[in-house]
Design a protein around this nucleic acid. Sequence first.
DNA 1: GATTCACGGTTTGCATGGAATCGCCGACGC
DNA 2: GCGTCGGCGATTCCATGCAAACCGTGAATC
Lengths: 253, 253
Amino acid sequence: MARVGKPRGSSRRDHFGDAVYAQIKADIFDFRLLPGARFSENEVARRARVSRTPVREALMRLEREGYLQVHAKSGWSVCPLDFAQFDHLYDLRVVLELAAVQKLCAGKDIAALDRLRAIWLVSPSLRVVDGAKLARMDEEFHSTLVAAAGNPEVARIHHGITERIRILRRLDFTHPERIIYTYREHAEILRALLARDADRASALLRAHIEASRAVVQTITLHRLHLAHLDAKPSARTNGAARKPAAARAPRRR
Amino acid sequence: MARVGKPRGSSRRDHFGDAVYAQIKADIFDFRLLPGARFSENEVARRARVSRTPVREALMRLEREGYLQVHAKSGWSVCPLDFAQFDHLYDLRVVLELAAVQKLCAGKDIAALDRLRAIWLVSPSLRVVDGAKLARMDEEFHSTLVAAAGNPEVARIHHGITERIRILRRLDFTHPERIIYTYREHAEILRALLARDADRASALLRAHIEASRAVVQTITLHRLHLAHLDAKPSARTNGAARKPAAARAPRRR
DNA sequence: GATTCACGGTTTGCATGGAATCGCCGACGC
DNA sequence: GCGTCGGCGATTCCATGCAAACCGTGAATC
């Protein structure tokens, strides 16, 4: 929850609300705000150097999207991780991406996949090995597939799902073999797509997503906490945030 | 944009923002706010007898959901109807509902469909003939199908789509034969579902939705306007709202 | 010791004021 | 007649004030 990035001197006409929104979202994704952590509007407003109005705008938006929840007259908290919900989101993701694959193989324009070929159909020596970066690339691979199918509404929904599961996906690439598998599976999916083999591409894509789901299903709150500590050993952690997700944060002063 | 329903004397602790949100949404669905109509926050606040703060909350929420758009320092407007977008939403709807059908036929629990049987598998003499009511029943039929599949996230997304296309669906049942067809098709879909015939149920459902899409594709802005006038001949219509969607509303006073 | 109850502080929810800015409208130049 | 520019009202966006409600605390009582 660092200060919001406001370029000094120049009065940007970007909304403060958007900046606060992005900041808090990033704080959640980067484990600076842990599930269950409680905070108040004034707290966020002080840190972001803005008033409560744009803060409330951002918080209510994040609430509608399922990241935060408001307790009546008693502050806000980060929604605890609901693994059943993640399961449902993975199912929905499979549905949307399989539909995109069907459409791609049936359609005529798959030139949009050229960029993916250049990224994923490369020799092993050129591969990315950084887990965090690969997580972003994985997101983009699947988003590009869906977007290439040409339905912006599907792409919009898929984007929302991608962000919701991002916090898990980050931990999907901590094992080196997952990186190898991801390259292999993406390459196979791409080849099947370019060959217009809808059935094979669908089966591969489904297996690929299910493998990711199986990995993240082994993630526990404890592992999330450890990942947080490993990633940001010097990150700001108040008394509330140091505790695991289910902890009841005592009132701050 | 009538006054927000606030029970007199008793201070409800329901948020004003929610009430304003629901009111404006209803105004859009009921053609009291036509696509392209412009208005200001103060205007809404005066009519709803609340301050601009909860009004802004509602407006920003409706903007995120695609119903409104804000013009910088120049007021708000109802998003013009984008028929290409409706097409995409129909496609997405097909994807979600077909996935639900697959899951329903594969699963073991279809007791949730009993209520639908009681509604749709009835003798013609007991059928509903009111178009508006049938539109609501049609919404509920499809929503129930999706909800019965057991994925709340899919149901949530599907609900949003349902609301987005509601303004079109209202006009889907103006012809009596569409009512007859709807009963027949819903009944056939239900029978296929109860027989666990996934392929047949899918084909029927797809054809059913495509038929609806074909009907609403014939809807023009002019017809929407006529429907508005027919439904609410005495509704409040200012100079801006009387014009079709593309009209540039002059500044109000 | 356990329980109840009242009180103070904190927080949200709403109202309102102020500043920047946008678009319109008319005057002005040509 | 036509284009350009400046002013002004209207509007959004942000800051701030205010009241109701909730939670924790601690004293008082059984």
